[in-house]
Design a protein around this nucleic acid. Structure first.
Length: 481
RNA sequence: GGCGGCGUACCCAAGUGGCUAAGGGAGCAGUCUGCAAAACUGUCAUUCAGCGGUUCAAAUCCGCUCGCCGCCUCCA
């Protein structure tokens, strides 16, 4: 049975659905003011496989992930570049969609924009004021933390302890330093909408409550995001949503850990980040689909709740690990045995159960990858014995389970075996296919004449140009680059 | 100061009370090869940061110590 770590209870719990067979999943999306980095990629990939696995289990998933397209950072960037905040937001929504597509992340069921939900937010805020948990000050509206008794239950904090902290901003107009903005009075030039409290714009937290409730209802089965969102963002969502509905906002909260660089959290403010676009550019010798799978394999080889250190070494290891699978697929494709009967034998069933047990245990992708490796070894064993049919049926299951994690989407011949590190080097010339082919022909002739010196010379020459040759038992030469 | 997490081989990483501590990368050896490459096979932690304790039994539970990280401010 599937069990998921719930931040709210700090325990692994079975999925508890509002409606049997249907999962509502809300994930806080990106603020669109810049290109997304590897950390955003991890988030997207984690929830992508969670969704895939829930579907693999036969559940229907309604997955909503928003764009925060009104925010201080967008306004700041727009001002700096002397263009409209809308133009900035639209540009980076486009960039985000492009990167997600390259990463092989499926589109959410609904991808709402905050700015399309202003009326819903205003309605929410009006009700909160009526209920006495929010108050108006000079065109701003604040949520009164002490008016909601459950405040702190998600992040397991005591509001009074937080008050003792020195880093809470002081704003004399607030009743309490922890009170947070639901609505902000807009300054000239800032995005602004008419409201009962004057022209203004929404605070950050209210948008997620408005969008999730509109698209998924008053109680979510799963709500996710990065662990840095637990406080204050998600805590505030709980407060305002539950104060509004009087019902539980989300049954289960799923938070993933960070990507780090040199043992520190990768973040915009520290400047220690790689954007997704950069990774694709740096590795551009590979087809995008290859880069995408390597990155995904790397990120999923660590459990989602543990931090992961981003490194070129890690990517290299991921590429090598994935190569092994594609080699198997290629061999299987070359043997071209017919599919045969689809019945899974006992051994295969056991692997499937192992895979499901791993994924059922709080989406343990690292363990699941281990099961895939075991399947690969089994298929190779069958090939060695000459049981091509058996190998094929194992590979079929392997592909199916791998695809839950988003692996093995390429045709085997489309995979590139070239070492990952070489992708970061610049190589001169010899991209001319004709030159390469004629050199290969010359070398084959030399080999027939047993002129090994000449053969090796050509091989070295091609190697320097990034063309790796493999002589195969049947006399042909395979080219890898 | 408050809350939480982590420390498993050369590197990455599963495992949270009981079969020989998964798996991958790197290394090494064998098979194969003209030599290579690739692949396959084998090998690689009597031990889980350290010290104490609980238990018939601990990497796993408890205590202390050391080291690292995150949140408490926008952040995936």
């Amino acid at each position: 049975m599937l069990r998921i770590s719930n931040t709210l209870t700090r325990q692994k719990e079975p999925l508890n659905l509002q409606k049997p067979g249907v999962v509502s999943l809300y994930v806080c999306g990106a603020t669109v003011y810049d290109d997304c980095h590897i950390g955003h990629a991890r988030s997207a990939i984690v929830f992508d496989i969670i969704r895939n696995y829930l579907e693999y289990k036969g559940l229907r998933v309604r997955y909503v992930k928003n764009y925060t397209d009104v925010d201080d950072k967008i306004i700041v960037r727009a001002a700096k570049e002397d263009r409209s905040w809308r133009a900035v937001a639209d540009e980076f929504i486009g960039a985000y969609d492009r990167d997600m597509a390259r990463l092989g992340v499926r589109r959410p069921t609904v991808a709402p924009k905050a700015t399309d939900h202003i009326p819903e937010m205003i309605q929410l805020i009006e009700t909160l004021i009526k209920k006495g948990v929010a108050y108006v000050v000079e065109g701003d509206v604040y949520f009164e933390v002490h008016a909601f008794p459950g405040y702190g239950k998600l992040s397991h904090r005591n509001p009074d302890d937080l008050m003792a902290g020195a880093r809470v901003e002081v704003d004399e107009r607030k009743k309490n330093p922890l009170d947070f903005a639901l609505w902000k009075n807009s300054k000239p030039g800032e995005p602004a909408w008419e409201s009962p409290w004057g022209r203004g714009r929404p605070g950050w937290h209210i948008e997620c409550s408005a969008m999730s409730m509109k698209h998924l209802g008053r109680t979510l089965d799963l709500h996710g995001g990065g662990e840095d969102l637990v406080f204050p963002h998600h805590e505030n969502e709980v407060a305002q949503s539950e104060a509004f509905t009087g019902e539980n906002f989300a049954t289960c909260w799923v938070h993933h850990s960070f990507v780090r660089m040199d043992r520190e959290k990768m973040s915009k403010s520290l400047g220690n980040f790689f954007t997704v676009d950069e990774i694709f550019k740096k590795s551009s010798r590979f087809p995008e689909a290859v880069i995408s799978e390597v990155l995904r394999f790397y990120l999923l080889s660590t459990h989602y709740r543990s931090p992961i250190d981003f490194s070129n070494e890690g990517l290299k290891a991921a590429k090598a690990g994935l190569d092994n699978f594609y080699v198997l697929f290629q061999k299987i494709d070359e043997f071209s045995v017919d599919a045969g009967d689809a019945a899974e034998d006992e051994a295969l069933k056991k692997y499937r159960l192992d895979f499901e047990a791993a994924m059922d245990d709080d989406f343990n992708t690292a363990r699941a990858i281990g099961v895939l490796q075991a399947l690969r070894a089994t298929a190779n064993q069958f090939l060695k014995e000459g049981s091509d049919k058996k190998a094929l049926s194992v590979a079929k299951v392997l592909r199916e389970m791998g695809q839950v994690l988003g692996f093995f989407r390429l045709a085997s011949e489309a995979w590139r075996y070239q070492a990952w590190e070489s992708s970061l080097e610049r190589r001169a010339g010899m991209t001319d296919e004709q030159t390469i082919q004629s050199l290969i022909k010359k070398r084959q002739a030399a080999r027939r004449d047993k002129n090994w010196a000449k053969s090796d010379e050509i091989r070295n020459q091609l190697a320097e140009a990034g063309v790796i040759l493999e002589d195969r038992p049947d006399g042909t030469t395979r080219v890898k680059r």
